[in-house]
Design a protein around this nucleic acid. Structure first.
Lengths: 153, 153
DNA sequence: GTGGCTGCAAAAAATTTGCATCTCC
DNA sequence: GGAGATGCAAATTTTTTGCAGCCAC
């Protein structure tokens, strides 16, 4: 799917839910589609041009997007919340988080996990009457860049 | 392991690292050992007796404990950070998080996942040179209490 | 036109920090 | 006794909210 196609999808999605497609909303969507990583609200604000749009609007747009499940929110270790396109608009994936520099790497090589995960989800329904809507897997560790100087030092 | 044994371990652990075992530190450890769920700093503070210990001390103690890996920190959807004993002092487990009421249920029935996870961890080392130290799995959904009224409504 | 959005400013919530004082070893 | 921990108050950081004016439909 091209950037334009995804944006068209998002546009339809927002309007379909009865919301306006305003300037700030379109611009935030565009930034999220064009940037292949997670960003916190301030980084989005930066890219929008701090003078052009207010910070509170950025938060309001991102919160709306999360409510509509256009984006999802990730919070790591009390840092500012990070936002990324949801799986509806992006391949399902999970995260490797470097404890040292805070960098987040996406991974999506986990297909062989999925059948085990669904097994678990059925178990939770039976045992806890808990109905799973989504799952997250995070690996914490040391990324290549942070490990290298250690080996040398 | 009994409560007292765990506390003795923690005591030794703190002293072994060259830190003092002060009143607040002991009391926070005791609360964490005696309470079988995660708590945020304010809940710990409440249980300590708000008048007896200052909030900043609670944060300082909890941060130290995380640094020493006595506890680990979980942040859900920008709520206040939650703390729980680390796996060194508690069985390794993961979380079911109710999107509706925010309740967190522990689960530890995932032994059959572990071999998949180690396989992944080896893959990350080869492919991304990322060295995994810990992993978290979270399932989000609706817990029994929140689902029931929906079914009836 | 008008209901919903946005900007602005102010508040709220969670956490951190500087410094004088006190405590644990 | 002295390094290190705590209390208190103030600052910081991130996010939310009230309200008047503005814009997409």
């Amino acid at each position: 799917m091209s950037t334009e196609d995804i944006l068209k999808n998002i546009r339809g999605f927002i309007k379909g839910k009865g919301y306006f497609l305003t300037g700030p909303r379109y611009d935030v969507a565009k930034i999220l589609v064009e940037t292949p990583t997670h960003m916190d609200a301030d980084e989005v604000h930066q890219l929008l041009g701090k003078a052009r749009v207010d910070a509170s609007t950025v938060y309001r747009v991102l919160n709306l997007f999360c409510k509509l499940r256009i984006t999802r929110k990730i919070v790591i270790d009390n840092g500012p919340a990070q936002f990324e396109l949801s799986e509806r608009f992006l391949r399902h994936h999970h995260h490797l988080i470097c404890k040292h520099c805070g960098k987040v790497v996406n991974f999506d090589e986990y297909d062989f996990l999925e059948s085990d995960l669904s097994k678990l989800e059925r178990l939770f329904r039976r045992k806890y009457h808990f109905i799973v809507a989504d799952h997250k897997i995070e690996f914490e560790g040391i990324c290549a860049k942070c490990e290298e100087p250690r080996r040398k030092g």
